[in-house]
């Protein structure tokens, strides 16, 4: 493939208070791939995800989104930090679905999805609402558009969080432990949803510690341990 990878991570390292959490990671995620990152807690997978999403600055190394530097800028041979403003502009390219979802409790489900479109992408309210309603229909949330997050079930909240990320037309969708905040019986539901997103061609990186889940949803498995990639192989249950 000649096109740039959706996500390219090069030599990325990050330590917290002197403790290395992620060490010299290289990783390319190509368009349409569904990558599951698994490993024990504390192996650095969430930190890698957060660095890739521009929520943390790596100590060393680079992140590129669709060939564009994210978090740094090249000026000839010189490499500088990217300005916060430029990073804000890049961030919507990565849709992040947090472990705790972090829906905004003061806004209805629909407004949770409309607000970022209006504020960040400067869409009109009508455009944003139309986009949100389309996503809600796809995700089976139409009836819940006017509910507030507190009135939604765990699974519904997660779908709102996914809609919020998708509404910004990200190149890449990232999930941090999508099953850990849910009741076990909802895991199958999440799985089905991720699969349908994958079949729609969405590029996804999913951090999880559940091997079964990872094997079922992903077409590529990345095993992490002690801040490094230990294994990178195709997954058995590849959906395509």
């Amino acid at each position: 493939m000649s096109a740039s990878p959706v996500l390219r991570v090069q030599g990325l390292s990050k330590s917290f208070q002197g403790v290395p959490v992620v060490q010299s990671i290289d990783l390319d995620v190509h368009k349409g791939q569904v990558v599951a990152m698994i490993g024990p807690s504390g192996c650095g997978k969430t930190t890698l995800l957060r660095c890739s999403a521009g929520l943390e600055r790596p100590d060393r190394g680079f992140v590129e989104l669709e060939g564009q530097p994210f978090g740094h800028e090249r000026h000839g041979a010189e490499i500088r930090r990217q300005s916060p403003r430029q990073m804000d502009r890049m961030r919507p390219k990565v849709g992040m679905v947090f472990q705790q979802l972090n829906l905004w409790p003061h806004l209805s489900a629909l407004d949770n999805v409309v607000k970022p479109q209006v504020v960040v992408l400067k869409r009109t309210r009508a455009e944003a609402a139309e986009r949100a309603r389309t996503l809600f229909t796809q995700l089976g949330l139409s009836a819940k558009a006017d509910e507030y997050p507190y009135a939604l079930s765990g699974g519904q909240r997660q779908r709102v969080a996914i809609a919020r990320a998708l509404a910004l037309d990200p190149a890449l969708l990232m999930f941090d432990e999508p099953t850990s905040a849910l009741d076990p019986e909802l895991v199958a539901e999440v799985l089905a949803m991720l699969r349908s997103l994958a079949s729609g061609g969405m590029t996804m990186v999913i951090v999880t510690h559940e091997m079964n889940f990872a094997a079922n949803v992903a077409d590529r498995l990345i095993l992490m341990g002690k801040g490094r990639i230990v294994e990178d192989r195709p997954a058995r249950g590849s959906v395509k």
Binding site: D88, R91, Q100, N102, L103, W104, P116, V120, L168
Partner: peptide
């Protein structure tokens, strides 16, 4: 609630 600021930043808000 924790993570509110971060989730706003994650969608690209300043």
């Amino acid at each position: 609630p924790r993570g509110q600021f971060e989730s706003a930043r994650a969608v690209g808000m300043s």
